[in-house]
Design a protein around this nucleic acid. Structure first.
Length: 649
DNA sequence: CTTAGGG
DNA sequence: CCCTAAG
């Protein structure tokens, strides 16, 4: 049997909140999304945080986030924000081969197994939270149907805040040979595999969903989104007996009270921009460990598989959907079984780092091992109900109220690190260490506290920690002095670098930051601080030509200096709003000289760094800047009045 | 290719 | 210094 598993994002229909609709916000968002260094997940997570806050502020909105159990839908489309990926995504498929004892996986879409991993780095390093999702591509269609204006943020937020509870599965979803079923799992859930293309009934249909979304044709933008999202998927089609299959599953409602547990995973595929990254890493984004549950009220059998799981969620009102169908079932008592659809589980963060020289084959193996390791480590399922974690395993569903259909939406599951194994998620104790035949040792940077928190505490008690940490962690920095000089972005990188002092042939699979960096191959220009002489020339040229004709300025002042491009000289108005990073950056690199100069001229001498620029020059800078700014303003006024006149006549 | 901005 | 969207 072949499971099509997919690692999915942990988002659900989500529409960009107001605050994110500005042009600036969009372009920035876009940029970030396109930049593999920041995945949609993080971005949205950020937005999500705001959303949540808003929600809290005005309870009236609380129901907007209904539907638990949707697949993410990043609706950032519309307007200028086209989150399309530029390169045709090549479905990076990783499938496990049952032939051979190694359980090696193979990248299907890539013909050359020995290809340099560079090509995939952006894929694996993508931050998208590897949320295992059991949806099928077919459903993708449904997923696009987002009810406009509805902010649905199920997965992350909802889960974290609310939850659900209960999971069961007696089947062995075990991953690698050594791993067994999740501890604590019980119940009448059956684990089954099913065909890939089976579009499924399984995942489809929770009960009556008031959502009309499923009927509405997907909008264009949404498709784009879909594409984007899907582009990040990485298809995994494990054939091995137990590999990743349990990461995520669905419980499909069947006619009798039996649930089928599907597993499907989707993962990162080629992402947005093709980019060379220097490190490759496999990561599940946010260390989060949450899940969603969709209640199914198919007790009366007739609607057993009629509704789409996705549609419920989409509408974002899983709440209503469940309640609608819920009543009748709740009336039946006793032997009634509670039917749940676990839409997805988020797997804990997983990072893999392997040398560039490693083969694709070893990459696959590593990923496999990492997954196996993490699961084998002993994850357990946490049950959340109505926002509370249910710790007492002995309680019956009845007692906890979980059997109440119209409340099933308050049920949630979360994969959590095994309590007895907490240390595995500590920064000091690498969670997953995988041996590999790749002869290079990589050291890892400490896990950021944020990530840590996400891993070790994904409980509902800390709703946003995952998100915020996830985002914030991007700014954490642990840098290597070596890389620092090469790449300024290194600071927030958690990439592993080969550690010379260590030998061994171990391949560390550790939590590291998801972002990968630009390839070393694409080296940045070397830093060439402007000399006082150059500054003088620049100032002189600007005085003459003004700020705006940088090409001319360049020609005049640095005609024979080919390392000075006009871009390096341009001015900037917001010079006094530099962030620390920017400032340091500018000072360090001495670029965009005019921008820097203006800034420098405005700050106190003590704050200046680098080769001191004569005050006289700085004064000229300010003067010239002021003068030309004024000129520009005049120009604009002129133009404006001009157009006004034109309009009048 | 330039310009203009944002990072 | 880098990256890009617009012109």
């Amino acid at each position: 049997m072949v499971f099509q598993k997919r690692l999915d994002y942990g988002f659900n229909g989500y529409q960009v909140p107001r605050g994110c609709r500005s042009a600036r916000g969009r372009s920035s968002l876009k940029r970030k999304l396109e930049d593999t260094q920041m995945g949609a997940f993080e971005l949205l997570a950020t937005v999500a945080g705001k959303l949540l806050q808003e929600r809290e502020a005005s309870p009236a909105h609380s129901n907007v986030s209904g539907g638990i159990g949707t697949t993410m839908q990043a609706t950032v489309g519309k307007d200028n924000v086209k989150l399309e990926q530029r390169d045709e995504e090549k479905p990076l498929k990783v499938e496990s081969c049952d032939q051979g004892s190694s359980g090696e996986t193979s990248l299907v879409s890539k013909p050359n197994q020995n290809k340099c991993l560079d090509e995939f780095s952006h894929v694996v390093s993508d931050p998208a939270s590897l949320m295992v999702n059991c949806d099928k591509s077919v459903n993708a269609e449904d997923r696009n149907e987002i009810v406009p204006e509805t902010c649905i943020f199920n997965n992350m937020l909802e889960l974290d805040t609310k939850p659900p509870a209960l999971v069961s599965s007696d089947s062995s979803i075990g991953i690698h040979p050594s791993s067994g079923p999740f501890p604590g799992c019980r119940g009448n859930v059956k684990l089954v595999s099913r065909d890939d293309d089976d579009n499924s009934s399984g995942c489809t249909q929770p009960s009556t969903t008031p959502l009309k979304s499923s009927r509405t044709p997907p909008r264009l933008e949404d498709r784009k989104i879909k594409k984007v999202l899907e582009s990040k998927y990485w298809e995994v089609a494990p054939k091995l007996e137990g590999e990743l299959s349990n990461t995520n599953g669905y419980i499909k409602p069947i006619s009798h009270n039996e649930k089928v547990f599907y597993t499907r995973q989707r993962s990162l595929r080629n992402t947005l921009k093709r980019r060379k990254l220097d490190k490759r890493a496999v990561s599940t984004s946010d260390g989060g460990v949450s899940s969603e549950v969709i209640s199914n009220s198919s007790k009366n059998g007739k609607n057993g598989n009629t509704n789409s799981l996705f549609s419920t969620t989409h509408g974002g009102n899983g709440v209503s959907s469940s309640s609608a169908a819920g009543h009748e079932s709740s009336s039946q008592s006793k032997d009634a079984h509670v039917k749940l659809s676990i839409k997805s589980f988020r797997v804990p963060e997983l990072f893999i780092e392997i040398p560039e020289t490693a083969t694709v084959g070893s990459l696959k193996r590593s990923v496999m091992e990492a997954v196996a390791a993490i699961i084998g480590e002993g994850l357990h399922v946490g049950v959340l109900y109505q926002g509370k974690k249910i710790r007492d395993d002995s309680k019956t569903l009845l007692q906890t109220g979980i059997c109440d259909d119209d409340k099933l939406d308050g049920l949630g599951f979360a994969l959590e690190p095994n309590p007895t194994n907490g240390s595995h998620f500590s920064p000091k104790d690498p969670p997953y260490l995988v041996q590999s035949d790749v002869p290079q040792l990589l050291t890892r940077y400490p896990l950021s506290p944020g990530i840590d928190a996400g891993l070790s505490d994904a409980s509902p008690d800390t709703p946003l920690t995952n998100l915020t940490n996830c985002v914030e962690s991007d700014h954490d920095s642990v840098l290597s002095p070596t890389d620092m000089s090469i790449d300024k972005t290194m600071p927030d990188s958690r990439a592993l670098v080969p550690h010379p002092s260590m030998s061994v042939d171990a391949l560390a699979v550790v939590p590291l930051h998801r972002k990968s960096r630009r390839s070393d191959l694409v080296q940045r220009r070397i830093r060439r601080p402007f000399s006082v002489h150059e500054v003088e020339a620049l100032v002189h040229a600007v005085e003459k030509l003004g700020t705006g004709r940088w090409r001319d300025v360049k020609l005049r002042a640095f005609d024979n200096a080919k390392h000075r491009t006009y871009v390096d000289l341009k001015a900037d108005d917001k010079t006094d709003n530099y962030s620390v990073l920017e400032y340091i950056n500018f000072v360090f690199w001495g670029s965009d000289k005019w921008k820097t100069l203006v800034h420098t001229a405005r700050i106190s001498p003590q704050q200046r760094r680098g080769e001191p620029v004569p005050q006289e020059l700085l004064d000229r800078v300010l003067a010239a800047h002021a003068y030309w700014s004024q000129q520009q303003a005049k120009q604009q006024v002129k133009q404006l009045t001009g157009t006004c006149l034109l309009l009048k006549t």
